[in-house]
Design a protein around this nucleic acid. Structure first.
Lengths: 193, 193
DNA sequence: GCTCCTTTGAACAGGTCTGTCTAAACGAGT
DNA sequence: ACTCGTTTAGACAGACCTGTTCAAAGGAGC
C-alpha cells in the first residue's frame, strides 16, 4: 500500500516529496518548477500526476510535512516538561538545533505566507500552522495563571517569529538564546504572585 | 529633468514606480509580471525599458522606495525623542499606523527575503534594510548604557520582526502595542542602575 | 520652427512553466 | 502465467514571462 515501499528503491511518491521539500524550502515554491523536482528526484513526470494531482497537491503535501516537522521537533521538548514556565521556555530551546541546521533558511510558513495568494493552498496551510503556534503557547500560559495572558501569548509568538527571522536573515547564531532570555523576562514580569 | 513631471500627467517613471510598488508589495515580486504593471499603470513597454533597464531595475527602485518609506515613517517619530528609552519605544509607536493601513500585508523585506536568491537584487536590498534596522536600535541602546547591549538589540529586532509577522499573518490589531509593552519590560530588565 | 528627450503601440523572439497524453515496461501478489 | 498498480520516457499544447526592436508621435524649451 502507500506505506510499503519497493525493496530496492523508494517509491516515486517518497522521492518526489523529499525532493520537493528540499527545493521548495530552499528556493521557494513559486521559483521551483516541477521539472527541477522531477530531474533531481529521478522521477518521471507521469508519476507526479499519478501520485499527486499536480503541483498544487505536491505543495500541500510539502507544507503538511513541514507542519509535522515543527510539531515533532517542539513537542519532543515540551512534552518532557511539566511546569508551565518550563514548557514555554522549552519551545525556544527546541529552536536551537533547528537554527543550527546547515539547511535552515527560516520558517517555511513565513516564506509560504510571502508567496501566498488569499485562499490559496499555501494560505490555508499557513493559517493552520499559525493556529497551532498560538495554541502551543496559549495552553501553558493559561495553565500558569499569568497576568494578561492574551498579550503574553502574542508576545511569545512574536519572539518565536522574530527569532526565526533573525536566525535566517541575519544568520544570528544566538537568535534562539536571545528569544529564550526575552521570554524569561516577559514571564517573570507577568508572574501572578 | 528627473524631478520635473509633465504638467497634465505624471511621468511614465513615476507611474511605473507607483504601480510596481503597489503590485509587488501586495502580490510578490516574482508573481507580478511587467505586463500587469504596464497594463495597470497605462505605460508602454518601451517606456519601462527606456526609464529602467528592465524588471530587475524596477525591483531595485521598488525596494529602495520601501526602504525610504520605513526610514521616513520611523525617524519622524524617533527624532522627536531625546531619551534613549523613548527613542526605542517610539519605533514601536511608529508601527501602529503602519499596521493599521488597509494595504498592509507585512514588511516588504520579509517578503523579498523569502523570494530572494543569494546575491540577487532583492538579497542586497534586504541586507541593507537589516543593517539599518539594527543600527536603529543599536544607537539608543548604546547611548542608554543598557546591560548586555548586543543581546538587547537582537531582542528588539526580534520584536520588530515578530510584530510585523503577527500583524500581517494573524491580523492582530494590537501587534504594535504588544511589542511595545514587551520592549518596555526588556528595557526595564536591562536598565543599568 | 527646430531639436531633443520622452512616450507610445505593436510586433517578435526565446525561454519557462504547468498540464495532458500515449505507449511501453516493471514488479509484486495471486 | 496473469493481473493490476506503479513507473518510465517522451512528445505536445497552451499559457505566461522577459527582453528587444522598430517607427512614429508627443511635448517642452530654445
Amino acid at each position: 500500500m502507500t506505506s510499503s515501499p519497493s525493496p530496492s528503491r523508494r517509491s516515486a511518491r517518497e522521492r518526489l516529496l523529499e525532493t520537493a521539500d528540499r527545493l521548495f524550502y530552499a528556493e521557494g515554491i513559486h521559483t521551483v518548477g516541477i521539472d527541477r523536482i522531477l530531474e533531481e528526484s529521478g522521477v518521471a513526470k507521469g508519476s507526479l500526476y499519478y501520485n499527486f494531482g499536480g503541483k498544487d497537491d505536491l505543495v500541500r503535501a510539502y507544507l503538511l510535512r513541514q507542519h509535522s516537522g515543527w510539531v515533532a521537533a517542539i513537542t519532543a521538548r515540551t512534552a518532557q516538561q511539566t511546569e508551565p514556565r518550563a514548557k514555554i521556555l522549552a519551545v525556544f530551546d527546541a529552536l536551537i538545533p533547528i537554527f543550527a541546521s546547515p539547511t535552515f533558511v527560516g520558517c517555511a510558513f513565513h516564506h509560504a505566507a510571502a508567496e501566498a495568494h488569499a485562499g490559496s493552498t499555501e494560505d490555508l496551510a499557513v493559517k493552520e500552522f499559525r493556529t497551532w503556534l498560538y495554541e502551543l503557547f496559549a495552553a501553558p500560559v493559561e495553565q500558569g495563571g499569568y497576568d494578561n495572558p492574551q498579550r503574553l501569548v502574542a508576545q511569545l509568538v512574536q519572539l518565536f517569529d522574530g527569532a526565526n527571522m533573525t536566525a535566517a536573515a541575519d544568520h544570528d547564531p544566538h537568535a534562539a538564546g536571545h528569544a529564550r532570555a526575552a521570554a524569561e523576562v516577559l514571564l517573570a514580569a507577568a508572574s501572578p504572585s
